[in-house]
Structure formats: C-alpha cells, structure tokens
Write a protein that binds this DNA or RNA. Sequence first.
DNA 1: TCATGTGAAAACGTTCACAGCA
DNA 2: TGCTGTGAACGTTTTCACATGA
Lengths: 226, 226
Amino acid sequence: MTAPGGDRPATGRRIPEATVVRLPVYRRVLFELLSEDHGTVHSVRLAELAGVGAAKVRKDLSLLGSFGTRGTGYDVGYLLSQIDRALGAGQDWPLVVVGVGHLGTALVNSEGFSTRGFRVQALFDADPAVIGREVRGLRVGPVDALGQMGPVAPSTIGVVATPAQAAQGVTDALVKVGVRAILNFAPQVLRVPAEVMLRHVDLSTELQVLSFFQLRRRPEDPVEAR
Amino acid sequence: MTAPGGDRPATGRRIPEATVVRLPVYRRVLFELLSEDHGTVHSVRLAELAGVGAAKVRKDLSLLGSFGTRGTGYDVGYLLSQIDRALGAGQDWPLVVVGVGHLGTALVNSEGFSTRGFRVQALFDADPAVIGREVRGLRVGPVDALGQMGPVAPSTIGVVATPAQAAQGVTDALVKVGVRAILNFAPQVLRVPAEVMLRHVDLSTELQVLSFFQLRRRPEDPVEAR
DNA sequence: TCATGTGAAAACGTTCACAGCA
DNA sequence: TGCTGTGAACGTTTTCACATGA
C-alpha cells in the first residue's frame, strides 16, 4: 500500500489517514447492526466487531464530532449517517475504467461498483475485439481516445485493469486528462506524480505482503484445524 | 486497509509493516533497473523511482541488513535477491480460491497469480453450473467440500471472490481449515479472529477511502488538463 | 452507574543530519 | 569525494486513564 501526496488541512478538523481507513470498516459493521435488535452500540462492542481496540474506536469517532451518549453508547443509525457524511456519500464519484478484459468486465459488473454513487463514466480498451462492446450500458472506446476525452472532473477516479505492460502508459494518460486518484488492479506498481493520490491494489503487492506476514509467524505455530 | 493481529517478534530484526508494504515497490523498480545499463543504484535514484524519500529508502533497506556500498550505492541484482529473500520468494505459497465467477476466474487467470510461487491449490464455488468446471488445470469443487479438505498448510492464503452475502460464511470456513491469511475481493468487509491476518482489498473500502481523499482536496484546485 | 470524550504518555514511523567507510 | 547506515529530533498514531455527563 502507498498513500502519499495531497494531504491538505481540509475544510474543518483534520482526520488522520489511519482513521479514514477504518471508517469504512465501522460503516460495514454498523450497517449489519442496523438490521439487528438494538438501536445503539457502545465502543467496546463496536471495537470487537471491527477487530480494533475500544479506545481507538472512541478516538476515531470523536474526530468526526461527538455524537455518542455517555452511559449509553452511539445511536447506530445516526452514527452511520455521520460516517457516510464524512466519507462523502451522496456525492457522485465518476470512474474511468481502462482495460475491459475479463478482470475489467468482472469488476465493472461487480456489486462493489454499483453502490454508493460510483458511476462508471467511460470505458477504454486497446483490443479491437473489445472496442465497441457494450458493458453496463456503456460503449467501450479505443484507448487512444482517452487522451481526447478532455479534462475530467477533479473527483474522477481512474481504474486500471490492463495487463502489466500497458498499465504505466494508461496511467500517464489518465493523469493527463486530470484524474487525481487511481485504483490499480494490474499486477504492476504504478508511478504517478506526487499530487496524484495512489493506492496500490495490485495482486502481486498484496500477495507479497501477505506472504511476508505468514513468514513472520513462529514456526511452532500449530496447524490447529478445529 | 486493516492489518491487525499476529505481529510476533519474528526470527531476527523486527521489520515494521510500513516498510514491508514498500518492499514490493522497491522490488518492482529494481526489476526494471536490472534490464538497464548500470549495475548499481543509489538511494536518491531509487527513492525517486519509487516515489518516496531517500532517507526512507535507506532506513528501509538497512532494516534488512546492510548490503550497500558507501560511495557507490546498492548492487541492483544483490539488493533484489535480498528483498526477495525477505519477502519469502522461493517458498511456495498455496492459494485456496473460493468463488469462481467472472471475477474469480479472471483473477486466477491473471498474471499476478502465476508469478513468484503462488500456486492455486484448490477452487470452490456454490453454483452447480460452475462446480466441475476446469480453470487453469484445476477442477472447481463444491463449496461444502471446503470443510472436508482437511487442515491446510499454515502458509496458505485464502482468496475470497464470492458475492457479498456469501463472503463471511466462506471466510469462516477458510479459517476453520487453517487458513491464516485472506485476500478479499468481495465487496464486503470480513470479520476474522485476531490471529488471522487480514488485508481488505475490497472495492467499496478502497473506493471510499479514495473518494475521501478526493473530498479533502481544496475546492480551488484547478482542473489542469495539461 | 456506565460509557463517552479527551488530555497526557507511550509507541511507532519519518525525517534530518552527519559520522564513517569505500 | 560520494553515498550508506544510523543516532537523535520530530511528527503522528495508539494506548492509557480518568474527569465528565447522561
């Protein structure tokens, strides 16, 4: 993972990146609690479900404002709405997807993309067999047309799902048309200018990091298949 | 992102997670440098290519041992081999993939999986239409058979590529057979016992975090399509 | 009484700056 | 001279512990 650059003071309080990264986790947990009995959670329970410490939960939430009730906890629905507000729900997040092979198509069609205001705005590919195809109601354009699509909205997120050797060129093109955030599914670490937000979600990096942690385990760890 | 749990002192020195996460980035850069002219890099150049500070590069590398040459830099090939060693290259990393729909199939067939010793060991799906299908030379088994596959090697990494509503159940089953690390591509944040290593690579989390950073930008940011 | 919200302490990670070595 | 490796300074994040309020 890598998350450098563009870290300005923002509108109000400054929310540390470490906290931001946990907000979607709380969101998911709260969402599940919504459909359950209680209308409130306290930090200990929330922490347990999210897999973090209770103090951390309280610190994190207090950074968004203080909307818990002492002696009771947090109202699930209200807390959820506050996290959503902080994460920018309600806004529209345009996506430009480059690479509409198996992986790209599967991603665009997958549930994760359709929720929460993420709209695929344009699709590009280099393969003549793919160009012109229709995916989710959008025609796939030739990758060369990417350069001519004109400046995109500054909130646009670029999604790279090309083979490794095409990924860097595509990324440069995305940056040129004004994309400031990139989600990378190509097995290739991208280099981008510092002002562009970048998160690496490439298979090799993730797998390598995971295997490192596996390696770090004590060898005497039991297999423990119970 | 979330990376809790199982953080034991390890064999030798303790390498911080932040460093581990950067190692694959260095690896990739070094790999490109291999095919170029010089046999050495110095920290400033490496830092530039990796998009981090030079001091950070030196700190990171010194944590693996000291194999640079003062006045000269690092030998690209040797440095690469040391990073590979640290990341556990050469070892075999078995993967168990659950969910062999479009996304799962695309993932298994993608380049990122075939490199560096990651071997898909078993494939499972719940869909009768998918069960029995052959992907990369492996037959897809019924998801119920997952529970009976017996204890897996402790280095096994579970890959979840199911629809959201199936993801948690599948994860529990993976944990039961001894999987200790999970790579999640379902749009669903998973809950796992603390001793299981977890990295979230789910679309919604990544997109939400990215959009938060987009939100944080100063509104006066120019579109700047040059 | 119970659980939040928060200062203050501790732990951790990054950056600086330079001593030391090729 | 040029660049590594690393203590020491700095900044950020986590944890602790408790005053405060429902």
